[in-house]
Amino acid sequence: MVRLVVDNRQIETEEGATVLQACLDNGIYIPNLCYLKEMDSPPGSCRLCLVEVDGYNQPITSCTIKVKEGMIVKTNTEHVRRLQRTAFELLLSVHHVDCRRCPANRSCELQRIAKYLHLGVKLKRFEQLERRVKIVQDHPCLEYVPSRCVLCGRCIFMCQRENGQAMLSFARRGLDTVISFFGEGDKARATCGQCYACVEACPVAALLIRNAHSQ
């Protein structure tokens, strides 16, 4: 067991755990979107799980550092909060906010983070960009809503994990980036429609089981 101090509280965790996981296990919430505890090397791409650690002169993503004995971690400094708010505001600037009609309403990870960071979901600092991407309805049992997607990549990871080969992937680039289901002829695709691990992993209801929700 490793002992570390988070926000002046001593916690214990297993060796080799990430700081983020250690905190979550001990009831200390750190905002995060792209992390799943099954990941061996988290992408660290959502930039929300930043913390300050003694010995580092900059805030660091807690999902990518392992716990060390005697580590001193602070999750709520002004510097960390400022970075988290900016990252969150940028994420929401390309998110189509329509909570009342969204199936994820009340279970949405973005709403949870907004509340935690004392921000609303209608933000004004950055210009709202609508990602004008065509919705390609080419999957037999899944539906994808790009205007909700935060491109965290959890679905891709889960599919890879469940099926050995990801049946979805990022496609295109920049503002046009989407999750794509390309590959109708893939044999592995035949199993699709059984696990729905991707749908479960989605923090914002951008991936849905087809026909389960009315648009």
């Binding site: 080969q165 794509s180 590959g183």
Partner: peptide
């Protein structure tokens, strides 16, 4: 599309991975 599928088959990766790289 069928060419991409063929490449995927040859390399033993999923079609969508090939598509993802190509569209990047």
């Amino acid at each position: 599309a069928s060419a991409l599928q063929m490449v995927a088959k040859h390399l033993g990766v999923s079609g969508c991975e090939v598509y993802g790289v190509a569209t990047f």
